[in-house]
Design a protein around this nucleic acid. Structure first.
Lengths: 185, 185
DNA sequence: ATAAAAACCGACTAAACAGTCAATATGTGT
DNA sequence: ACACATATTGACTGTTTAGTCGGTTTTTAT
């Protein structure tokens, strides 16, 4: 594995456990088994490393989740697939999940950063589609996207605390009804 | 104003703008107009200061929001009042909101901290009531509480980006329908 | 009035920190 | 074989940091 990737993996583990403030760059390099200098060769500052990691994790989760949607699916099926994929991805990648939340709720985060993601546009289009078809509540499509995204986080946090429900398909259907009822007309 | 309070107010402002990592204790003391030593007289470590601030902000928001509920209100009215009060409180106290989110999504946060809040129990009881009365979905009451709390955050973030909607009572009713539909049977 | 306690100061320190740099190694295209 | 770029090292530095401490003032209780 190349050292840039090794650094990002180690940084993810340390940031998610000890926070940005509690993780020194020297420690990241040391635990990644590379020299101190190479970190700053790939990422000019600590903040740049954090930002690069965020782009990476966002890309992976969106790519995976949107990739699960199949053609000719109904709107409800598409949203269920999207929601379930995101929930399961986050459950299987807890470090990514923690890192992501930490970043999005820190002063690092800004709207420009969010907008720069191509995938965000794609989910907005899905929401607009639902409104046009008269299936969704008549509110800003941005609200609908944020509601679903917010409920993904809520669901993941809950399922983390109740591990026995993580394999319970029926319960997950129940949880999705919360999401669907929230956005449907 | 006593210096302990001054310190917490200044810390809140700085933490919400620059993060825990980006705010030095010496700066907090300086901008609060007090000596360095007095900070550590009241809060033995930086972490203790952060935790004390979190308890304080949680107490204030819950006390305010739960206090808005009037007797003989229906369940829906109670939840509407609660949701609206929380949303408006957070809009009026953006620094508290940012600080709270930063804390809750950092490694500082743990379940024990959450459970130690007396108010959490009160909202849980409201949810249990709704389930018993057959008005709410049959899921863990904890899910319902977390869904509402999560949607408060979603709503606040959205209204912050769309200031013109903050006084629009009708739009806020629409947004509450999202919350209500999510939890109701 | 007095003693004890609590509040307060600010200079100080030892450790930790992000980022640099000169030197070396490794790869790549011609 | 050569030249040039890119990858890699780890010792180093100037700064910043959380937290301490000896001493002073103010408050409180008797």
């Amino acid at each position: 594995m190349d050292k840039r990737t090794k650094l990002m993996l180690t940084a993810k583990r340390l940031f998610s456990k000890h926070g940005f403030y509690g993780t020194a760059t020297a420690r990241i390099a040391k635990e990644a088994g590379v020299s101190n200098g190479i970190l700053f060769h790939y990422f000019s500052t600590k903040d740049k490393l954090i930002e690069a990691m965020y782009f990476d994790v966002k890309d992976r989760i969106f790519h995976y989740s949107l990739g699960q949607i199949y053609k000719d699916a109904t709107l409800k099926e598409s949203f269920y697939t999207l929601w379930l994929a995101a929930v399961e991805w986050n459950l299987e990648n807890p470090e990514d999940f923690d890192f992501m939340l930490q970043f999005e709720n820190s002063p690092f985060y800004s709207l420009e950063i969010e907008k720069s993601h191509k995938y965000v546009q794609m989910t907005m289009e899905l929401a607009e589609q639902g409104i046009e078809q008269g299936e969704f509540k008549i509110v800003s499509p941005l609200v609908l996207v944020q509601v679903v995204a917010g409920l993904v986080v809520t669901t993941v946090k809950f399922l983390r605390m109740n591990e026995e429900l993580q394999q319970d398909t029926e319960y997950k259907h129940k949880l999705f009804e919360i999401v669907w009822d929230a956005i449907k007309k």
